[in-house]
Write a protein that binds this DNA or RNA. Structure first.
Lengths: 152, 152
DNA sequence: CATTTCTTTCATTTTTTCTTGAAGCGACTG
DNA sequence: CAGTCGCTTCAAGAAAAAATGAAAGAAATG
């Protein structure tokens, strides 16, 4: 049951390059009926202190997990933020967009370097770079739209 | 120049979980003014026979690379298919869609298992599973649309 | 303000993923 | 058809990524 959810999140989050432990933590919190402290999480998942700490840090940075203060308790307690789009948004913002940006710069540089190339090759190459650029532009346009769409 | 393109593709393809060597091969072919044989590719990139063979096989399976026959030459020669959407499409079809499907099945199973749970927990959980399902449905709807969009 | 409690950080170890190259298969060649 | 060539496969090795846990850092407590 809980395991089922955990496996599911491991699977999805792995897809966007997150380690297993992060998927486990989020899955556990997603199913948890009440806030959990780090040591409960460690124990439940049988993961190390370091993995728990780092995983929670990362999830916090996405806004996928929030700290909830429990009075009379020194430990931080965590709850899952149910807005799943946060993962997709973080992926787009942290991975896709920077790479697209960087790729466009590369294309520009390549177009400049193209000058000293035999006419024939240059023609072929120009077409390819155009196509690449076109695709990157398209990507850049659709990404913000996608982000909005996912937030419903 | 060529290196620039290769690095770019390594970067992007790594994002969808493809190994470095695959990015290198595609990048090289993308910039190549004429079809290349496997041994030229190996030599140019300084990769092994195995990596070249496996990488090309994978790229062929995506349709990202095509074999071109050169008469009077026993070797297969490869050219890059410029339709970059093929990577995204393959990623969606091979990774995203199956996982979404599987996740929906998991949710169904979880909903059934929910029956024997204390009332209070059940209420909280039901809401979460609803949300999850909603998100998965949304994903399933947008994916085919995305595939079409990318093909222009 | 010393002590205890909890968290973060990071060098090391473990696990996973990728690459290598030798063995083997089939197809062309002379 | 024997020989060569080109390619695929896969066990072993190398490289990269993730997990561990001890040490150090904050923050609350008494």
């Amino acid at each position: 049951m809980e395991v089922e959810a955990i496996e599911m999140f491991i699977n999805f989050l792995r897809l966007i390059g997150l380690p297993k432990s992060v998927g486990e933590i989020y899955g556990l919190l997603f199913m948890a009926p009440r806030p959990m402290a780090m040591d409960e999480i460690m124990e439940r998942l049988e993961i190390s202190l370091g993995a728990a700490s780092q995983g929670l840090k990362l999830l916090r940075s996405f806004g996928a997990v929030r700290v909830v203060y429990e009075r009379g308790n020194r430990r931080d307690h965590y709850v899952a933020d149910l807005e799943l789009s946060k993962f997709a948004t973080a992926f787009i913002k942290d991975e896709l967009q920077p790479r697209t940006q960087m790729a466009l710069e590369r294309v520009k540089r390549m177009e400049e370097a193209m000058a000293d190339l035999p006419e024939k090759e240059r023609r072929v190459l120009r077409e390819r770079l155009e196509r690449l650029k076109h695709w990157l532009d398209k990507g850049q346009k659709i990404l913000p739209w996608l982000v909005r769409f996912m937030r419903l």
